[in-house]
């Protein structure tokens, strides 16, 4: 029975190690923050250009969409902080056979793979998202209650868990194809649609797939709608929580299946 405090201790040590490692390359560390900030600015610029030509998109006003982009940034950057680097690295661990070493550690291997490196810089970018969220709420004249902020935290965690499970699932494909960089890269394209209002997509295959199979149209939309107080029904956030659990279960099953097919690359 893995004890919580033991894992917390391991995680604390990993974070400390990541920090020390990061501080060796200070300029690079700062440049990555600039890169992420630039891409966030790009998304906001795109929305500004669109709203220069229209007052609303599928019932979403300008500041509601800015709120959505902010929520998306917040969740995505937390995902970066905790998991993205580690999951992208899985194909390398398999290719080089380093995974053997991790499998032998007396710790849950999936835990170790998932949280090995902690990207502290992305927290700052997540905070930029939070600033945009608060600013757009002020523009909308909405003041969420404490209960709503708590609800927001819960749905953000669910969104985070969806991103994590799906990318983990994709990364596991590298147990079969060694060059899985294209697959992980592909996930960035899926990311992109999460910041668009779900209602802009006509009811059909596309919207159904990205709601009920790869729930990208839920992860950021639900938190944004919750804060903007425009959730049509509790089913919307229940759907996100349900999908978060479903995605995690599927990814765990696929992980176990993949491990059984693992043949080490090194001696």
């Amino acid at each position: 029975m893995p004890s919580f405090s033991r894992y917390a201790g391991i995680y604390a040590a990993l974070i400390r190690y990541s920090l020390i490692h990061e501080m060796q390359f200070k300029v690079n560390f700062l440049l990555w923050i600039v890169v992420e900030a630039l891409w966030f600015g790009l998304q906001l610029a795109f929305m500004t250009v669109l709203y220069g030509h229209t007052d609303q998109i599928a019932g979403w006003s300008r500041w509601e969409v800015v709120l959505l982009v902010g929520c998306n940034q917040f969740i995505q950057q937390l995902f970066h902080t905790l998991f993205v680097t580690n999951l992208s690295n899985l194909s390398e661990l398999i290719r080089k056979g380093t995974l053997d070493l991790l499998l032998l550690q007396p710790v849950n291997t999936r835990f170790l793979i998932s949280v090995k490196k902690f990207e502290i810089g992305n927290i700052l970018n997540a905070l930029m998202g939070l600033v945009v969220i608060i600013y757009s709420l002020a523009q909308l004249g909405r003041v969420p209650t404490l209960a709503q902020w708590l609800g927001f935290a819960v749905v953000c965690l669910a969104g985070l868990s969806v991103h994590y499970s799906l990318m983990f699932l994709l990364a596991c494909i590298s147990f079969w194809t060694v060059r899985a960089q294209g697959i992980v890269w592909g996930y960035y394209n899926l990311f992109n649609i999460a910041r668009l209002p779900a209602e802009a997509f006509p009811r059909g295959a596309y919207r159904a797939v990205f709601t009920w199979v790869l729930p990208m149209l839920l992860v950021s939309n639900v938190p944004a709608k919750l804060l903007a107080q425009r959730l049509a029904s509790p089913w919307e956030w229940l759907a996100l929580l349900g999908m978060a659990v479903a995605c995690f279960v599927v990814s765990e099953l696929f992980w176990r299946f993949s491990l059984r097919h693992y043949t080490s690359a090194s001696a």
Binding site: G182, I183, L190, I193, Y206
Partner: peptide, 19 residues
């Protein structure tokens, strides 16, 4: 994979404009 995944945001952009 790259080309196929690249079509997902393209379709999204087109849907957005249609909306």
């Amino acid at each position: 994979f790259r080309a196929a995944f690249g079509l997902v945001p393209l379709a999204a952009t087109l849907f957005l404009w249609e909306a």
